[in-house]
Design a protein around this nucleic acid. Structure first.
Length: 938
RNA sequence: GCGCACGUGGCGGAAUUGGUAGACGCGCUAGCUUGAGGGGCUAGUGGGAAUUAUUCCCGUGGAAGUUCGAGUCUUCUCGUGCGCACCA
């Protein structure tokens, strides 16, 4: 019998499906374990070999946990709203739902052929109305909530309203807009309904506000900060400009500190936590208010160095700062206006890339130093960002390099307030070595003491207070797109109203074209049926809008991260029509125990999801406030691109080994035309790229044409994509699974090289032969040899350690070693080979299922529990030959396998005795390598 | 600039967490076998030197340190990747 992987794999995939082997049962007395992958966006290109890496790892872990006796939830679904499907729809006119459904079919087929143990009965799709009904529901909850800083949690907005009517808002410690006015309970009662609603919007966690947003003209939509990379859109790489727009926002800033604190309690990688900490950007300092000479307003600045207050020699405002207009003196007006105009013209990207040029202008106005009362010139400079802090800084040129540069450039004085430090060339920024001088009551103090003293003094003057500032901004939640969740919102007299939960979902209307309309409105502006009838409580045609009964609906849709911010909770109870998930299901499954996905989501999905989780927890909808206990970032699998060299300015290609001094251009070549020796098939290349059909080729002496290789991200546009379908076809899913794991550590970035797969393929063939030969099963019920048992037990120990530490690569190596050793031992004992199969089952499920059934088992290996992973099993079964010995001394593994426990103990005791007698003292540690004492430590 | 991660053969990568560096696989070399579409088996494979039951020296980006002992710990330095970036 030969190893016919194709037959075996289809057979068992069908078996698992028919028997619902992987259906997770909520009513179980087993302990639960929730293993989750980041669900994919179903793109038109299908999967390449890099995509399933994380799914294979999580699948192995899920299968392992089932063998260990856990009730495992291992679901999968699709993040199916998003830009690419919409871009495709704009180009082709096809409905995004159609292309999305088609792509999902492809994904499903590709996933199925790899033998994943997903519980597909729990599949979710963010674009299905059954699902986004609950996304809309969560949005309404956010709208109906505010953040109470005293309780440090979100509260229902009704509670806020009753507080307002009791005491107004003066005693309320809430996270709200900066321009919220103060009012008393009587004032509140006198406000009109509209005025009250406007004020409440300043408190809601989902709120509508005019804000500076990142507008991408090319994509015709706004983008969140995490969707912009180096001033360009993440998708497409188009320029992004700042624009004032009225948009829905999420008050994630309210959760800044808890998002930071929460990182302490979850097992995520340091680099990922660091990314999130960076993104949240907490800095501790003070808010200081400076009076302005001959002016009523004050300038507020945020600083982390209030200790340097006596070093202030000027102030700098961001060009966009509102005070710029009012404080500028007549004589400086022209210069200031010209400067402000020049900076607004520069794009965000220009401003970011050009950080070395110092520019600024004097306003003519002066601020007043809070202690010395000396006048301080107020400048404008574009090194100050409007979006951070208060958009204004107190400049201390001796203590901040940027201020130092600015002062030098404009010849502003640089007073020195540091003891025994030379600041003529550069600012002195080392907080820990700071000793203040020339600073009145702060003289002689260090950073910490001076900071405290300065803030205390400012507080007593009423000119400042302690303040924590965050870089994290509220997240813009509106997108001018079609293919996203519609808002459950209609507008009465310009104010948003939520549609009652009873009437959800509000489903996407049909539109003719998916482009934004000519006047820049979102595509939903084209929908003919898109108005809310408040009596019928239904979506009706726009033509019926009368502003008394029928009102316009929100035209924007929600961003891509809306649906992905809570899907892990939906898997717990995916068919529920009454709630997003039942309390029973939520309390049983609680949180994700192991989450696997890419690190590119560090400041997007993973931050937003934590935010929503904490919010839903606050409002009592969830039992835990962190959704994923442990998270692993799988590294990317890179492609090995091939490049043909073309002599510049000609149509002649030259073999890589012939390039001497010619200047050449490199052109991507499809990797399928290139063999392992980097030789390209010229005919295939010509047929592929018709435009190079008549090109000349300078080949090597042996007639071959060599190409250059380089490792890059795997992508269609780089022609270096390896399709898993082809691998499954030639080597099978088990070989693909093993090889992806064998390639290297899960977290690491590593290049794909198909050639190496023969190694694991041979392993599978050897494994097969270990159980079956030409005449059939070669397993006997004879008792196993001691050596064979040792091999088994050693492998159990190693592989269990490997999987618990997610070292899947070394686990595969250990299987290979074991198969070779069992082969050498000519082992055919059932007592060894049955448990051995169990070890491999999570990694190569199809071949192990087949061999398991060949061994005469009637039930699936995948659904069975085994005691071999229990630490007690090894202790019981390897009594005669300790797998490891953790006594006073440590021995190499080889030694522990070569000697029995009695022998080892004897040696140790004898050696100790001898040494003690010889030296007259007792050794602390005796180092034994290969049975020989190499050193003694006292 | 700040932060995080990493640096081991021709390649992907191991190393019991401070104890024989290079496991396992690819590739390569030699021999056997002829399966004949991608083979199978055996042996060898870090570098160098003398010599073949082998032996010796060097070797984990570089320099120093701790230690009986360092790929592993500490400091400095060089290089690569990622994140943030005029963040006050």
């Amino acid at each position: 019998m030969t190893y016919n992987f194709r037959e075996i794999e289809t057979k068992w995939q069908k078996y698992w499906e028919q028997n619902q082997t992987f259906k997770a049962d909520q009513d179980s007395d087993k302990p639960k374990f929730y293993v989750l992958d980041m669900f994919p966006y179903p793109s038109g290109a299908g999967l390449h070999v890099g995509h399933p890496l994380g799914y294979i790892a999580s699948d192995i872990y899920a299968r392992y946990k089932r063998h260990k006796g856990y009730n495992v939830l291992h679901p999968q679904g699709y993040d199916s709203f998003g830009l690419p499907a919409e871009q495709y729809a704009i180009q082709t006119g096809q409905h995004p739902a159609t292309t999305t459904a088609k792509n999902i079919d492809t994904y499903r087929r590709q996933l199925d052929q790899m033998g994943f143990s997903f519980d597909w009965s729990r599949e979710v799709r963010t674009s299905s109305a059954d699902y986004y009904k609950w996304t809309q529901w969560i949005f309404i909850q956010l709208f109906e909530s505010w953040y109470d800083k005293s309780a440090d949690k979100a509260m229902p907005i009704t509670a806020l309203v009753s507080l307002f009517s009791k005491n107004g808002n003066r005693d309320i410690n809430a996270v709200c807009d900066a321009d919220t006015p103060g009012f008393s309970s009587t004032q509140w009662a006198k406000f009109s309904e509209k005025e009250q609603q406007k004020i409440l919007l300043k408190y809601r966690l989902a709120y509508l506000a005019e804000a500076e947003v990142n507008w991408c003209p090319k994509l015709g939509t706004v983008l969140a900060n995490d969707e912009i990379v180096n001033g360009l859109s993440e998708r497409g790489g188009y320029p992004v400009v700042r624009k004032k727009m009225t948009q829905w926002s999420m008050r994630i800033s309210a959760y800044a500190d808890r998002l930071l604190q929460g990182l302490e309690n979850i097992d995520w990688t340091d680099s990922l936590k660091e990314s999130q900490r960076n993104w949240i950007g907490k800095s501790v300092g003070a808010l200081i208010r400076f009076d302005i000479v001959d002016h009523k307003s004050k300038i507020e600045v945020f600083t982390t160095r209030p200790d340097t207050i006596f070093g202030v020699s000027f102030m700098t405002l961001a060009p966009e700062h509102p005070l710029v207009k009012t404080i500028t003196t007549e004589t400086q007006k022209k210069a200031v206006e010209a400067y402000v105009l020049a900076t607004t013209k520069r794009s965000e990207r220009d401003r970011m890339s050009d950080v070395k040029t110092i520019s600024g202008v004097f306003t003519g106005a002066h601020a007043v130093h809070p202690f010395t009362k000396a006048p301080i010139p107020i400048w404008i400079g574009d090194y100050v960002l409007a979006a951070y802090g208060t958009g204004a800084v107190m400049a201390v040129p001796c203590g901040d390099q940027r201020d130092h540069d600015f002062a030098k450039h404009f010849n502003i004085s640089i007073p020195n307030i540091f003891k025994d430090v030379d600041i003529s060339e550069a600012a002195f920024t080392e907080k820990s070595k700071t000793v203040i001088s020339n600073s009145d009551f702060l003289d002689g103090l260090n950073f910490k003491a001076a900071t405290k003293a300065a803030i205390d003094a400012l507080v007593s003057l009423g000119q400042g207070e302690r303040k924590i500032n965050y870089r994290l901004r509220d997240a813009v939640f509106s997108r001018q797109r079609y293919w996203g969740e519609p808002f459950p919102v209609y507008y009465v007299d310009g104010l948003p109203k939520m549609i009652d939960i009873k009437h959800l979902p509000i489903t996407l209307p049909e539109v003719e074209k998916y482009l934004p309309t000519e006047d820049g409105d979102p595509p939903l502006g084209r929908a003919e049926v898109w108005a809310w009838d408040t009596t019928k409580r239904a979506v009706v045609p726009n033509s019926k809008i009368d502003q008394t009964i029928v009102f316009p609906l929100e035209l924007n849709t929600m961003p891509g991260w809306a649906g992905s911010s809570w899907y892990f909770n939906r898997y717990m109870d995916p068919q529920n029509t009454k709630e997003f998930a039942s309390q029973k299901a939520l309390n049983y499954w609680r949180e994700v125990d192991l989450y696997i996905g890419g690190s590119e989501h560090a400041t997007g999905h993973l931050l937003y999801a934590r935010f929503w989780q904490k919010f839903l927890f606050d409002r009592g909808f969830l039992p835990v406030d962190e959704f994923a206990k442990k998270l692993i970032n799988q590294g990317m699998i890179l492609g090995t691109s091939a490049f043909a060299a073309r002599i510049e300015g000609s149509n002649t290609f030259i073999s890589e080994d012939l390039i001497d001094k010619q200047s050449v251009q490199y052109i991507h070549v499809d990797v399928s035309f290139v063999n392992a020796s980097n030789e390209m098939d010229i005919a295939a290349f010509k047929a592929w790229r018709k435009d190079y059909g008549c090109a000349e080729f300078k080949t090597s002496n042996d007639g071959s044409f060599k190409v250059k290789r380089e490792v890059e991200k795997m992508s269609k546009s780089k022609y270096n994509v390896v399709n898993p379908d082809a691998i499954c076809e030639t080597y099978g899913a088990d070989a693909l699974r093993l090889y992806e794991m064998f390639l290297g550590p899960l977290e690491q970035y590593k290049p794909w090289n198909t050639a190496g797969i023969t190694g694991v393929f041979n392993f599978l063939k050897k494994l097969w032969k270990l159980y079956l030969n030409d005449s059939g099963l070669r397993i006997t019920d004879n008792p196993p040899s001691k050596q064979a048992l040792r091999i088994l037990h050693k492998t159990i120990k190693k592989v269990t350690e490997d999987i618990e530490s997610f070292s899947f690569n070394t686990a595969v190596s250990n299987f290979m070693i074991a198969v070779n050793e069992l082969n050498a031992q000519k082992c055919n004992s059932r007592a060894v080979l049955e448990p051995f199969l169990v070890l491999i089952a999570p990694y190569a499920p199809h071949i192990t299922e087949e061999l398991w059934s060949q061994l005469g088992h009637k039930t699936s290996i995948s659904s069975a529990e085994f005691p071999i992973f229990d630490p007690q099993y090894l202790i019981e079964n390897s009594k005669n030959y300790p797998i490891s010995f953790n006594g006073k001394m440590r021995f190499t593994l080889e030694m522990s396998l070569d000697f029995t426990r009695e022998e080892i103990e004897k040696t140790v005791i004898e050696n100790e005795k001898t040494i003690a007698q010889l030296e007259g003292r007792t050794p602390k540690k005796v180092i034994v390598v290969q049975g020989k004492i190499v050193n003694i430590v006292y």
